[in-house]
């Protein structure tokens, strides 16, 4: 197992959200975590990324326990989180945002190489490299957030709601980029989504969460064909 959570409980203060969450990701796997609003999908990602301390259970990455580490340590290990709020540095240029993304990388050559790769992947960012991040459109900011995440040479990227607030075309661009990263860089990707059809078509494996519990998991195409899923999420 590359990244897995073992009987993970987490929440905010006294409020427990996650109950006994077990997720297993193989290296280079493109998976998704689906579920309705307020079921703990984001909490799961935040706990893995070190923004929330788990109440119980373990997060294991590459054989090492990373549950409870501070967020910056988790990034150093190679797990990057792209939040729904994006958390960009709005008063810095696109270029500076990307350089901040490479904060954990010390080698200037490596940073430059990665910058070229990221600019190549998202042409739009290259055109706007001098613009302040806060003045860009929603889609561009989403690209920038993902690009910034990529700058630290992560092995796993956790993306929260890549389609949120985006037009269908822009959503395609973002998903295509994630797909390219997954295939070319052997990057392990876990996306959290509400847009179930699109996500299940793009990913290989999926987990379905309800009220903080994983209720179903399996290959994405099986989930897509599942009657319960179709009824609840796809409106068929």
């Amino acid at each position: 197992m590359f990244l897995k959570t073992e009987a993970l409980d987490a929440g905010y203060g006294f409020l427990q959200i996650l109950r006994d969450v077990n997720i297993c990701l193989e290296e280079g796997e493109f998976s998704c975590l689906l579920g309705p609003n307020g079921t703990g999908k984001t909490t799961t990602l935040k706990t893995i990324a070190g923004l929330i301390k788990p109440m119980k259970g373990k997060v294991i990455f590459n054989g090492q326990e990373i549950g409870g580490l501070a967020g910056n340590k988790v990034v150093q290990k190679g797990v990057v989180y792209v939040s729904e709020a994006l958390n960009l540095f709005t008063n810095m240029s696109v270029h500076d945002n990307l350089l901040m993304g490479a904060f954990t990388v010390k080698d200037h050559e490596k940073i430059k190489k990665r910058l070229d790769y990221v600019y190549d992947l998202f042409q739009r960012l290259k055109q706007r490299h001098g613009q302040l991040a806060g003045t860009m459109s929603g889609g561009e900011r989403k690209m920038l957030a993902i690009a910034r995440g990529l700058m630290s040479y992560p092995k796993v990227i956790l993306v929260d709601e890549p389609s949120f607030g985006l037009s269908p075309q822009m959503t395609d661009v973002v998903f295509d980029a994630l797909d390219v990263l997954n295939r070319e860089q052997n990057l392990t990707v876990l996306v959290v989504e509400q847009n179930a059809t699109k996500t299940l078509e793009a990913t290989k494996n999926g987990y379905v969460m309800e009220n903080g519990v994983i209720v179903m998991s399996g290959a994405s195409k099986d989930l897509l064909a599942d009657e319960g899923i179709q009824k609840t999420y796809l409106g068929l």
Binding site: L51, A70, Q76, F89, T90, F103
Partner: peptide, 21 residues
Amino acid sequence: GTAVRAVSQDETGSLMVGIDL
């Protein structure tokens, strides 16, 4: 110094790029 500026703009974002808050 840039890390300090980054933290002033977004604390969570800084943590997410690996800055020791």
